[in-house]
Structure formats: C-alpha cells, structure tokens
C-alpha cells in the first residue's frame, strides 16, 4: 500500500531521518514509536505526501509520490485517512460538516451520505454531538470525530498521529478499539505514539509490528506483539 525506500529527510540543517525503508502492506497494523522529536510525525507526513523526502522514494498504491502534482497527491489522500493529534477541524463548521468535509472536497453529494454519517457517528459514539462545534467537544470527542472524518471516504489506509495524546486511559482504549476494528475491516493502520502502554494494550487485540525511530533510523522494535 505505502512504501518508503531509503528515505532521508532533513530539518533545520540536520538529518531527521536517514535511509528509512518500510512497507505498510494491505491489512497490516503498525505502531511507530520513539522519543519526542524523533521524527514520527515527519514519517507520517511523508507517507501521505505532506512532505517530500530529500532523497529516496515514497510509493503509495503503486504511484511514486514525487512524480505527482499537488492535485495528484490530493486525489491519493482520499485513499488515506489521517488523524492528527490536534485533530485539525474547521471550527466554524459543526461536527457533522467537518466529518463530511472529505466527501464535499471530493465533489460527492453529502446529502446522499446521511445514513452513512449516522452510522459512523454512532460507531464513534458521537451520535448526540452532530451539531456541536469543534471547540465545544472534549479531547476524546475531538479524537473520535477526527477518526470519523478520516474514515468517511472508506480509505485503504488510516494514519493516526498520537491519537491518544490528549485523552485519559479509558478514552485511549476506546480509540484503540476503534482502530483495531478498522484493521479487522481490512484497513491498513499505522499509529504513531510514544505511549508504550497503548502498544501493550493492543497486544491482546491485534497482531501489530512495532517500529521505533531513534537517531534518524527506523528499527523493528518487536514483531508480533
């Protein structure tokens, strides 16, 4: 699905990632861990084309991202759902409108998706918060709304950047459960987190590969948790 080959990325004159190679196969579940500032978010951004590597190659669904124009990358992103730690909502739109945003951007009729939206809202436990504005949501609700927006287009890959960073343990378990469910539906999932307890908790639910970034290098931290 997504493949990084000998990717290097520099930031502020220093090499943040060097010679990183990883392959996210269809239906796989990955954790990406490492200390703060190690380059987890950078690696995720390289995966969905928000950043361009200094060298090496990023391939998504068989297409070399460096050969794509901005609109080509935009089309590719419709197959990759992204959950940011800070969620990135449009605060003047309500939760439903934010969740439907990928459909609107793809030129689809959002009115046709009313039923899907209801199901999705119920799935993430936000059925009662449809009309709320993002600033009115709690941290956990924001993360679940961001997850709903990430999957509304039924993407093949879900990338989550510290999805449990701002929520309590109970909520992080709930989010993890949703991500595991997505993986069981056949989605490829990559979660960037520094929370090792989350990775341990996932052990009972899913077979996952744990990748660790340290000193700009990517290492396999533990197979088949």
């Amino acid at each position: 699905m997504i493949e990084l080959e000998n990717v290097a990325y520099s930031y502020g004159g220093g090499a943040l990632l060097s010679d990183v190679s990883v392959s996210l196969g269809a239906g796989s579940f990955h954790f990406l861990t490492g200390p703060s500032g190690a380059g987890k978010t950078t690696l995720l951004k390289l995966c969905y084309g928000a950043l361009t590597p200094a060298s090496g190659r990023v391939t998504a669904f068989g297409e070399d991202m460096s050969s794509l124009e901005r609109d080509g990358i935009a089309l590719l992103r419709r197959r990759i759902g992204v959950v940011h730690q800070d969620c990135q909502f449009l605060d003047h739109l309500n939760v439903s409108e934010n969740i439907l945003l990928p459909l609107a951007a793809a030129g689809r009729q959002t009115s046709d998706a009313a039923e899907d939206l209801q199901e999705l809202m119920a799935w993430v436990g936000l059925g009662h918060r449809e009309g709320a504005l993002p600033p009115e949501l709690s941290g956990g609700e924001r993360q679940r709304a961001a997850l709903a927006r990430a999957v509304i287009m039924s993407p093949d890959v879900v990338l989550a950047d510290e999805p449990t960073g701002n929520v309590d343990w109970e909520m992080s378990q709930r989010l993890l459960h949703l991500l595991v469910e997505l993986n069981r539906m056949g989605k490829t999932v990559l979660i960037a987190t520094h929370d090792l307890s989350l990775i341990r908790a996932a052990k009972a639910q899913v077979q996952a590969r744990v990748l660790r970034i340290a000193n700009g290098q990517l290492q396999l931290a533990g197979a088949d948790l």
């Binding site: 419709r78 992204v82 990135q88 951007a105």
Partner: peptide
C-alpha cells in the same frame, strides 16, 4: 492558511 491545510489534509484539490 490553516483552513487550506485542513482542506489539503482531507484530499481537496487546489481548484476546490
């Protein structure tokens, strides 16, 4: 600019 970043994140093209 933040709105544009969010729209790009969800797959909006430049034309949209």
């Amino acid at each position: 600019a933040q709105v544009i970043r969010v729209l790009r994140l969800v797959g909006a093209t430049d034309r949209y």
